[in-house]
């Protein structure tokens, strides 16, 4: 397993050095638009994540962070 991972890392490192970005910087105007953000408004996202986490048992892999309970 270690050898496999080592081999994968070496291949990635070598190939990584030669990768050319397939979306050029001058082609990223659409991606830079604010509507193309996964978390455009952090306060609003954090709050709605807290609402869901208080009433649903799944947790983790959301975009917001928080602590405490505040639930019932």
């Amino acid at each position: 397993m270690k050898h496999l991972l080592l081999g994968m890392a070496v291949v990635l490192i070598i190939s990584g050095c030669g990768i050319e970005p397939w979306v050029k910087p001058y082609e990223r105007a659409n991606l830079a638009d604010p509507i193309m953000s996964f978390d455009r408004d952090p306060s609003a996202t954090s709050y709605i994540n807290h609402v869901h986490e208080s009433r649903e048992l799944s947790r983790g892999a959301e975009s917001g962070q928080g602590g405490g309970c505040g639930c019932n």
Binding site: G16, I19, P21, Q65
Partner: peptide
């Protein structure tokens, strides 16, 4: 660092994160 306090529950949370951009920021 986050501190959350109510009358019967206190939570202290410490976060650490590292992110790295690569492949021409792709």
């Amino acid at each position: 660092y986050t501190n959350s306090a109510e009358n019967d529950f206190v939570a202290n949370t410490y976060n650490f994160g590292i992110s790295h951009s690569m492949f021409g920021d792709l």
